[in-house]
Nucleic acid binder design. Structure first.
Lengths: 232, 232
DNA sequence: AATTGTGAATTCCTTCACAGCC
DNA sequence: GGCTGTGAAGGAATTCACAATT
């Protein structure tokens, strides 16, 4: 085990390996080599071995990795062997979908509080039975229910304030769906899932048939032209 | 003539710059420097200038960038000055949320078809008025309606088949929410949004206080992340 | 004076290749 | 023989730093 700083790219891949191991375990496979796993994800086998080696020597030379053993190690590394207590702030379409979507969370994430500012929603319950509370109660309830992860699904303009409030209540991990760049305090981690960026990336790909490998030259038709007010 | 492959990180950042420029334009700001933009996103100003320089010389030395001019250029680069025709396959919680969520799409993405396998849903309409059709019609309708982007929000086990079907109908850009690694044909681009990975990343952070409080926020989108590749 | 555009330096990540072990 | 763990090499992305430009 090393004390080196571990890249988030590595921990993201651990999530992928974990999912693979879950499947293997479910189908009764007992060992897996880095090479075999790499093939499933078009990854390099050395990368998998290196990712794992940051956390220990989990493999057996000449054999590979014991599926269940490695699975347990990764669960522990990712903090998934204890339950995270999650709140969702903003029960619009997306927030509601996440509140009702059990598939994602498996057994490590428990949605224990829901907040919205709309009086029409307050007091109603989602399918799991959790009641939507007024966002006025945000700070106290977050503390009281010992929430450690907050999902922000409010409009962009409200997101920064929600972040400030939950930070004040001691939350250090936030999953943000608002399409805005947030400014967390030191020690607070924000992951933003930005669907606009994903869609626009696809749009770029379609607009640029050579974008996936061949070179492009845009300069001829995109050069700055002070005469046109931008329309190019 | 400068020919160079453009990284997806660069185009993702263009999306962010675009959003910034939209706000600036709305508030009547006429010029912006790379330095000023960089401060908003904790990015390096040289990176912004380099990103833009791939596509042309849009700036004016001593002045900065003309907001509306640059905005128009980026819209064109990202293919957002023409409308993309989008279909959503799988109208569960998430698919329904996306179908009803107009906020994301602005004016460049038009949701023109919805598909589900559940007979109870077929024939019903979402708020925008678009009717949910049987997934049996997927291939013909995709062709007929000239869909160019497909959003996959079906269960993980069904996703690969949906990808195969829409690929057969000529779709080359897919936004996938199913938590599974898909295998697109060459020339087809898949972007996967994996909420499990995001949540587990937060869990790791909480479980490892030594994973110092570095703020990542947009890191997945804006910094090096070979995982989020897609096309073949 | 201010700011862009860009080669050079740096940092970070991946892949190679092989020693070491089962 | 097969496979892991890892130092070294290679590659990619970011940041520096400054000449060029308005």
């Amino acid at each position: 085990m090393k004390t080196e700083k571990i890249s988030e790219l590595t921990t993201n891949r651990l999530s992928v390996y974990l999912r693979c191991l879950n499947e293997l375990a479910a189908t009764g496979v007992e060992t897996i080599s880095s090479q075999a796993m790499a093939e499933q994800f078009n990854l390099n086998s050395a990368q998998i071995r290196k990712d794992l080696a940051y956390f220990g020597e989990f493999g057996v030379r000449g054999v590979g990795y014991y599926v269940e053993n490695l699975r347990q190690h990764i669960l522990k590394i990712l903090g998934l062997s204890t339950v995270n207590r999650v709140a969702i702030v903003g029960l619009g379409n997306l927030g509601m979908a996440l509140a009702n979507y059990h598939g994602f969370y498996q057994h490590s994430f428990d949605i224990v509080a829901l907040f919205d500012a709309d009086p029409a929603k307050i007091g109603t319950r989602v399918r799991s039975g959790v009641e939507i509370q007024s966002a006025d109660n945000l700070k106290e309830v977050i503390k009281q229910k010992e929430i450690n992860i907050v999902v922000i699904t409010v409009p962009a303009t409200a997101a920064e304030q929600v972040l400030a409030d939950v930070t004040e209540s001691g939350v250090r991990a936030v999953l943000n769906f608002a399409p805005v760049h947030l400014h967390p305090k030191p020690g607070v981690k924000v992951k933003t899932v930005d669907l606009s960026i994903s869609l626009e990336s696809l749009s770029y790909f379609l607009a640029n048939p050579s974008a996936d490998g061949v070179n492009v030259d845009y300069r001829d038709f995109l050069r700055y032209d002070p005469e046109s007010n931008g329309a190019g």
